[in-house]
């Protein structure tokens, strides 16, 4: 589904990614963890080319995103994104936020898109909020709308960029619950997060990025019970305490 080979990314003189290799199969949930500044969000943002890779290969659904002939807008609809700061469109209602993509990108009729939007709102537990505006919602509700918006394109994968990091602690659970549900339904997910509980419980694989390379890539059980990598050990001690 997603295949990253030898990905390098520099911002000016700072080399953030130094040869990332990562594969995500259909239906897999991969959680990426790592210290801040390690480049984990950058990996995610390179997958749908919100950041332009410096070099390397990235295939999304067999489309080479580095190829100039690839329609990147189309690829983005196959791997949509959920952002740390939600980035909902404040001038549109909740329902309009969700239906914009299906209508403008997929060419769906408004009636059809509204139906889809209502169904997705029900799925994230916000059926009664369709006519509200984003600024009238709590952080957890906003992020659930953002997930519905990402789902509305009926993508093959969803990329989550620290989806709970901007939330008050008591709102984290409702968002993780929706994500867990998606995982159970077989959605392909790449999740950058600090929620170790979610990684342990939901991930098929956990990836530890540090200093721009993948240091560890293992199923959660081995990853957490037997961290033999010294940097990971260090990191886990700091995160858990």
């Amino acid at each position: 589904m997603i295949k990253i080979q030898n990905l390098y990314k520099s911002f000016g003189k700072i080399e953030v990614l130094r040869g990332i290799n990562l594969q995500v199969s259909q239906g897999e949930v991969v959680v990426i963890i790592g210290p801040s500044g390690s480049g984990k969000s950058t990996v995610l943002r390179c997958i749908n080319k919100l950041e332009k890779p410096t070099s390397g290969t990235i295939l999304v659904d067999d489309f080479d995103i580095m190829d100039k002939h690839t329609d990147i807008n189309m690829v983005r609809t196959e791997a949509t994104m959920v952002f740390q700061h939600f980035n909902l469109f404040p001038h549109m209602t909740v329902l309009e936020n969700i239906t914009l993509g299906p209508i403008k990108v997929r060419g769906m009729t408004r009636a059809k898109a509204n139906e889809l939007g209502q169904a997705l709102l029900a799925k994230v537990g916000l059926s009664d909020k369709d006519a509200n505006f984003p600024d009238q919602l709590s952080g957890g509700q906003k992020q659930r709308v953002a997930i519905a918006r990402a789902l509305a394109l009926q993508p093959k994968a969803i990329l989550f960029d620290e989806p709970t990091s901007a939330l008050d602690p008591e709102l984290v659970g409702e968002v993780l619950e929706v994500m867990k549900q998606l995982a159970l339904e077989g959605m392909t997910m790449v999740v950058v997060t600090h929620e170790m509980g979610f990684a342990k419980e939901v991930a098929d694989r956990v990836v530890f990025i540090d200093e721009g390379v993948i240091q560890v890539d293992k199923p959660p059980k081995e990853f957490f019970t037997n961290p033999d990598h010294p940097r990971l050990k260090d990191f886990l001690v700091r995160v858990v305490s």
Partner: peptide, 18 residues
């Protein structure tokens, strides 16, 4: 306008003009 708005638009497949 926050750059996240442009990113969110692009992330659902809209082109730059849309």
């Amino acid at each position: 306008i926050d750059s996240g708005q442009m990113e969110a638009g692009r992330s659902i497949g809209l082109n730059a003009i849309q």
